[in-house]
Design a protein around this nucleic acid. Structure first.
Lengths: 149, 149
DNA sequence: ATATCTGTAACAAGTGTAGTTACAAACTAG
DNA sequence: CTAGTTTGTAACTACACTTGTTACAGATAT
C-alpha cells in the first residue's frame, strides 16, 4: 500500500473544511465523506493542527475549521506537514563499507533523493487549496490542464 | 520503510555492472557490495532483465552484465522498470459515493498523482547511468551541483 | 449537570518487504 | 560426459508499518 495515503486524505479533508467556511466540522462528518473511521481523521487533523493549518474545539458545538485562507495554503506545505515516506527510499542496511563503490553510492543516492524530493515539492507548490476547491467545484473545464507544465 | 528501496538498490547494482564492463558479475559479488542476500539481488536482477537493462548467464562462468551502454540508460527508465509504489498514494477505500465533494476529490487526487509522477520522471530522466558512475568516481567536484535545476 | 466532541492511548488485523533456505535448470571446463 | 558453479524461483519466516477499532479522559456549550 501507499506510504502516503495520508497526504491524499489530508488534501481531501482540507478541501472539505475550505468549503465549509467558518463552520466547525465534526470528525464524524469528515469521516463520512472520506469513508473511514473518525479516529483516523482526528489523528490526521492532529498533525494538521500542529502545522497550523486548522484549529479545533472540543465540546458540544466543537469541531474543526480552517485556520488560514485557502489561497494561503499550498500543497507542498501540506506534504511537508504530513509525515509521508520518502519518494525514493534509501536502503535500511548501509552498503558494505569495504566496497569503495558502495560507499560512494550511498552519498550519490542521498543526493538523488534530495533532488527528487525537491522536484515533488516544486510541483506541489503550484497548487493552493483554493485551486483544489476550484477543481472540485468546476464540473466542466477544470484547471487540471494547467497541471502539466 | 520506504516503498522503493528497490529503486535505490537497482541504481546501485546498475552502477556496479557499468563499472565492470563486459565482465560477468555474480550475484554473490553484488550482494557483497549492497550488503544484502544474493537472492534479493537476483530477484531485482530478474526485473532488470525483463526490462532489457541487463543479461544474465547461468553456469560456471555465469553472472550478469549490462545489456546497454550506460549513456543509453536513464533513471526514469529504471524507475518505471522497478515496480515502485506511487509517489502519492491514493486511499484504499474509495470516498463515500454519496458525498459530492468526496466523489470529485477522487478524480482531482488522481490527476494530482499523475502530475507528481510526471515531475519525478522528468527529474530522473536528466540522469543517465553514465552520470551516476561519474559521480561515484569523481571524488572532488562531482556533477551533483547540476541536480538542482 | 448533562450531553457532545476532541485528543490520545492501546490493541488487533491486514499488508508488504526483506531475509533465508532449498532446489531445479542451465552451462562451462576438464 | 561428469562435476562443479551459477541463475531463477518458490516457499517460508520475521519484521515493520498502516489502518481500523474500542475506550476513555478532558474540554465546552446548553
Amino acid at each position: 500500500m501507499a506510504l502516503n495515503g495520508q497526504f491524499a486524505m489530508a488534501v481531501h479533508i482540507l478541501a472539505l473544511l475550505a468549503k465549509s467556511g467558518d463552520m466547525n466540522v465534526k470528525s464524524d462528518c469528515i469521516a463520512g465523506s472520506v469513508n473511514t473511521n473518525p479516529v483516523v481523521v482526528r489523528r490526521l487533523l492532529s498533525q494538521l493542527n500542529n502545522a497550523g493549518f486548522v484549529s479545533s474545539q472540543t465540546g458540544a458545538t466543537g469541531g474543526t475549521r480552517l485556520a488560514r485562507r485557502p489561497e494561503d495554503i499550498d500543497l507542498s506545505d501540506v506534504y511537508r506537514a504530513i509525515s509521508c515516506g520518502e519518494v525514493i527510499g534509501l536502503p535500511h542496511r548501509a552498503p558494505n563499507p569495504e566496497c569503495p563503490v558502495g560507499v560512494k553510492m550511498e552519498t550519490v543516492l542521498c543526493e538523488l533523493q534530495k533532488a527528487v524530493e525537491t522536484a515533488v515539492a516544486d510541483k506541489l507548490r503550484r497548487f493552493t487549496l483554493r485551486d483544489i476547491i476550484a477543481m472540485v467545484e468546476g464540473s466542466e473545464a477544470p484547471p487540471i490542464a494547467n497541471i502539466y507544465n
